[in-house]
Amino acid sequence: MTKLSGAEIAELLPQIPEWTVIEEEGMKRLQRIFSFSDFVEALEFSVKVGSLAEQANHHPRITTEWGRVTLTWWSHDQGGMVAADVEMAKRVDVL
């Protein structure tokens, strides 16, 4: 995995239109907030994402709150976004 350039990120973003790129700690990261009717639904979704992440050996930051889950993908090793982040976002969108 190699870190994506700004141009590569811009080219890939149309494939995942509900995701945004944020900058945090000097790194670009892919993020989306999902809304649910209660904590149980949010937690169940978080578990599904965790299973996908474990299968792919590529793990996001998952913040689970009442009625909301925030997912953030980036590569710690590469110091920013990689193609696997976009692929995982696509897989999560199918959930």
Rank of each mutant, 00 (worst) to 15 (best):
K3W: 01
K3Q: 09
L4Y: 02
S5L: 05
S5C: 03
S5I: 00
A7P: 02
A7T: 08
I9T: 06
I9C: 10
A10H: 10
A10Y: 07
E11H: 12
E11W: 05
L13V: 01
Q15W: 05
I16P: 04
V21S: 09
I22N: 12
I22Q: 05
E23C: 07
M27V: 13
R29F: 06
L30I: 10
Q31L: 09
R32I: 03
D38W: 02
F39Y: 15
V40Y: 11
A42L: 03
A42W: 03
F45C: 06
F45I: 00
S46W: 01
S46D: 00
V47S: 06
V47C: 01
V49L: 02
S51H: 14
E54A: 08
Q55I: 14
A56T: 04
A56W: 08
H58V: 02
H58C: 04
H59E: 00
P60D: 01
R61N: 11
I62C: 06
I62N: 06
T63M: 13
E65W: 10
W66G: 03
R68F: 01
R68L: 12
V69W: 01
T70D: 12
L71P: 00
T72Q: 11
W73Q: 02
W73Y: 15
W73A: 05
W74F: 15
S75I: 08
Q78K: 14
Q78S: 13
V82H: 05
V82T: 09
A83W: 00
A84M: 11
A84V: 13
D85L: 08
D85Q: 12
A89F: 04
A89L: 09
K90I: 11
R91C: 04
V94K: 15
